[in-house]
Every structure is written in structure tokens, then in C-alpha cells.
Design a protein around this nucleic acid. Structure first.
Lengths: 166, 166
DNA sequence: TTTTTTGTTCAAAAAAAATTGAACTTTCAA
DNA sequence: TTGAAAGTTCAATTTTTTTTGAACAAAAAA
């Protein structure tokens, strides 16, 4: 073994640790590991990186890099930058918590909430099909409970965004 | 086909819709579908149910029912109740948002945050191994950014709990 | 005690999700 | 134009997660 080669248990470099940190973070919030790694490497890099850099340094396929970057751009977590006046695309991590959380809420939370609201509406329609009045009253109450939750959730999101926006 | 058998496109009953609603909800927050279904059926039931009821009405295995109930109890989303002075165990959904969110934060959020905090600490140790002063300064700044995020996150959880607790 | 009912555990199977890589498109330079 | 570099797409593969079900354990009834 060459002296600079490190065994598995060796200390990781800071950028490797950041990649690992964001890989875990991505999994926690339900995003693919590769997406976390890409963000991590960009976050750990003083200079913008190309897709080829990501493929090489993270050992991921071109396909993963492309799809991961697409998702990160949609989330507003990564942006395209001009660099080296090169025709290749360069990318940079966005470090504003407000933007990261905002993108996550917009892309991952709101769509689910909307579909939930729609489903809840359908549910109310079906109440008419319940003939037993006691059961019907029970269901009405249950639906009211969900609506109360839903109302809170809708209030909480802007509150959260406000709090996180410095 | 017997007249009471409904084709796939037929209207669902209210309890089926609630099961489906919570199945989706579970997936959104990263829990197995079966866990959502179990909670959904309990939520939709005026009376406590047994494990056998869940197996039969949701068409899931005894193993899934047992494991799902275990998780829901750990989350504080379901509780054991006495009923019918029967030796079987009976279960009921908990409908307090405060408790549901509290359990989720305690079981699913806190452990991840703690492991993140630990990893961040390790990361700081490794800063010493960075010889280039410019790169080191860059990393120091990045770590500071994560620490700022982490601080916010730690403040946000109690705030959230307070807001959701009626 | 023995049998039956109820519930748990966990290895194996099935299902779902992420990743790959080869074919394709786009874009620019020669 | 043509060729090469850069990037995208998506069917096939791999990996991860969930679910199953049979063996086991616990507890009460017979």
C-alpha cells in the first residue's frame, strides 16, 4: 500500500465528511443519497464544479449526476454559474437556508398537501353514502379532526419560512 | 358478480378512503404504507380493533400488523385499550395532533439531529488536518454555516410543538 | 398438563426506489 | 457540414425497503 493510500478506517478528508453529512441529510428528508452527495460536494468546494467533476469525484454515473443536478436546481439548492468562460456548465451550492427550505416546501411539501386536501374533499362527498346516522356522525367528527390538522399545517408553513428567513 | 361486489372504479367506502388517506400520509413522512393503513383503519373505527381485525380488513400479514402496531405505539399514535373484557388486545388511534407530532419528532427527528450534531463535531476535528490556510478558512466558514442551520433547527422544533399543541 | 389462542420474530420473498449506462439529442468548434 | 464534447433520457439492473409467513413464545382455557 502506498503511504498516501488510506485504509478504510482512516480519517476522511473534510470534503468526504461533508459529502457523507449531506448524503445522510438527504436520506432523512426523503431524497436520494446521490442528490445529497452532489450537494455536499458542491457545498464543500470553493470553486464551481462541472458535471464531469461530480461523476469523477463521487463515482456516480453521468445519469445520476444529470438527474441529481436537475432535482437540486428545481429545489433551488444549486445554481448554474458562468466560470472560466468555458462551454461546460458549472454549478454552485446555494447556502441560504431560507431558499433551501423554501424550495423543499414548494417542491416536496405543497404538492402533497394539495393532493391531501383534494382527497379530503372527495371523502366528504362520500359521507352521503353512509346511511347509519350514528356512524355518519362519527365520520363527520373524524373529518373535522383532519380538517383541523390541515388548517394548522397550512398556518405552520409560512410561520416556519418566516422564522428561517434570518 | 354479486351485486354488492364493487368493480375497481366504484366508490370507496369512507373507511377505505381514510385508510388510503393515511397510507399516502405515511409514505409522505417516510413511514411504511402498512403503518399508515393500520392507523387509518383505527382512525376510521368507532370501536377499538384487534390485530386480527387489522389482518382481515386490510389484507396484511400478521407480521405486518404486529410490527406496524409496535411502531405506532412507539410513536404514541395508537394505544392499547381494555374492551369487551376479552383476552385479545384492542387498539385505538390517538387523535391529538400534539401527541402525533411529538412522537414523530421524538422517534424520527431527534435521533437524526443528534447523529448530525455528532458528525458535525467530528468534522470540526478534521479541520486540523487541512494544511492550506485558504482552504481551511473556507471550510471553517462552511462549518459555521451548518452550525447556524443547526441552531435554527433546534429552536424550531419546540416552537413547532408549542404551536401545534392547541 | 395439554391444547388453543394470541402475538412476536426474523429469514426469505416481493415490491419499490435508486442507479447505471448506452442510445440519443444538443451545442459548439473546426 | 462534420465531429467531438456535453448533457439528457429511460429501460434494465442493482440496491434498499417492505411485506410475508412459518417457526417460535407466551398466556389462558380446557
Amino acid at each position: 500500500m502506498h503511504p498516501s493510500d488510506q485504509p478504510d478506517t482512516a480519517k476522511l478528508t473534510v470534503d468526504q465528511r461533508l459529502v457523507s453529512f449531506f448524503r445522510d441529510g438527504a436520506k432523512i428528508v426523503g431524497l436520494p443519497a446521490s442528490v445529497g452527495e452532489i450537494f455536499g460536494l458542491l457545498f464543500a468546494s470553493p470553486k464551481p464544479l462541472t458535471m464531469a467533476d461530480l461523476v469523477e469525484r463521487l463515482n456516480i454515473s453521468k445519469g445520476s449526476a444529470s438527474q441529481g443536478l436537475k432535482m437540486l436546481r428545481t429545489l433551488g439548492a444549486v445554481r448554474d454559474v458562468e466560470y472560466d468562460n468555458d462551454r461546460k456548465g458549472y454549478f454552485e451550492a446555494d447556502i441560504e437556508l431560507k431558499k433551501l427550505v423554501g424550495g423543499f416546501i414548494r417542491e416536496q411539501v405543497r404538492p402533497h398537501m394539495e393532493s391531501g386536501t383534494r382527497k379530503l374533499g372527495e371523502l366528504e362527498q362520500d359521507l352521503d353514502t353512509v346511511s347509519d346516522p350514528e356512524l355518519r356522525a362519527f365520520y363527520e367528527n373524524r373529518i373535522k379532526i383532519i380538517q383541523r390538522w390541515s388548517g394548522k399545517a397550512k398556518l405552520v408553513l409560512p410561520l416556519l419560512q418566516k422564522f428561517l428567513g434570518e
